[in-house]
């Protein structure tokens, strides 16, 4: 059996078909097996060069992509905005075309501007993987989140997932909504009125402002960080008030009728959206998410690289 992804690049979950997501999950499961072997490496991408372009800070995503590429035997070059010609006034297309002139086949890019990956895919000749573009999408994070839920609960269809926190500035939230809805899960968003985009219900999600009600409803809580660096104005009176109304701790988890799964895309602000006793509890699958991240990214790289132009 063989099947090609319906897309040439991974720019966002919105463009993916359900079968694409299924195929990525099936391949990721195989790679998860590979990375748990004593020798964690396969030679599939030995003739491919990947450039990791990070115009915005990242630890986890960047390490995860780098490990995924190395375990597929790809050659890699790393680039971060702080140490580049971007600060000298070079345009994005020029920067990338210069890198591609050195014979690079794939580009993994994180960029602070929404749509940067789509823009790049139209103007340069390489496969693009979006590793986060501003407040738009972060497709590999959504895939690894959905993969982790499916791994833990057996399926996604009918699973109730609540995404809690700064929905307005979160690319993780948007990609998660697209991915979970496509796979048949029910999705709720929860947070202060000011941090929930106005027309988000149009995407088929339920909006709830009461944390306790949201947690009572769900099977899985995906908790997001307050993205202070993206907030140009103050969206809530104080961090202390946010913690009191939307912080998840052991106490509130214990007050629920069932054990829900707690997820977080990282980095965690301990004591803000998630207390330590909730983040480190047995209900938390945060570290499994990180492990699955490498497998899912290997699957995406493998499936995209496998397309013959």
């Amino acid at each position: 059996m063989s099947q090609q992804l319906s897309v040439k690049h991974l720019l966002g979950i919105k463009d993916l078909q359900i079968d694409d997501i299924r195929q990525i999950f099936a391949t990721a499961a195989n790679f998860k097996d590979v990375i748990n072997r004593p020798i964690k490496k396969v030679p599939s991408l030995r003739d491919i060069t990947v450039a990791n372009l990070f115009f915005e800070n990242s630890t986890r995503t960047r390490l995860s992509f780098e490990l995924a590429e190395k375990r597929l035997s790809a050659d890699i070059v790393n680039f971060s905005a702080s140490s580049s010609s971007v600060s000298k006034g070079e345009t994005l297309i020029d920067t990338v075309n210069n890198i591609l002139a050195m014979k690079v086949d794939m580009v993994v890019m994180r960029h602070p501007k929404p749509g940067a990956a789509v823009f790049l895919s139209r103007h340069v000749n390489a496969k693009i993987i979006n590793a986060g573009d501003g407040t738009h999408e972060h497709p590999t994070q959504a895939l690894l989140d959905a993969f982790s839920i499916a791994e833990k609960l057996g399926e996604l269809k009918g699973v109730r997932v609540v995404i809690i926190g700064d929905i307005l500035h979160s690319r993780v939230a948007l990609s998660n909504i697209f991915c979970l809805k496509k796979m048949g899960a029910e999705v709720m968003v929860c947070g202060p009125v000011t941090l929930i985009p106005r027309y988000i219900a149009e995407l088929g999600v339920i909006v709830e402002h009461d944390l306790k009600k949201a947690l009572d409803w769900c099977d899985v809580a995906n908790v997001l960080r307050i993205q202070l660096e993206r907030q140009d104005i103050r969206y809530f009176p104080s961090l202390r008030e946010y913690v009191m109304l939307y912080g998840i701790n052991r106490e509130i988890l214990d007050s629920l009728k069932k054990d829900i799964l707690v997820m977080h895309p990282g980095p965690i602000n301990r004591g803000v959206e998630l207390s330590s006793d909730a983040a480190d509890s047995r209900q938390s699958i945060i570290l499994q998410q990180v492990e699955n991240g490498v497998a899912v990214r290997m699957a995406v790289l493998y499936l995209l690289a496998g397309q013959v132009d």
């Binding site: 063989s2 099947q3 195989n30 396969v42 599939s44 397309q307 013959v308």
Partner: peptide, 17 residues
């Protein structure tokens, strides 16, 4: 993942366990 015809076929092969 160890085949020598990766990227030389029309479509990628779905692995088994």
């Amino acid at each position: 993942f160890f085949r020598d015809d990766f990227r030389r076929r029309e479509s990628v092969i779905v692995p088994s366990a």
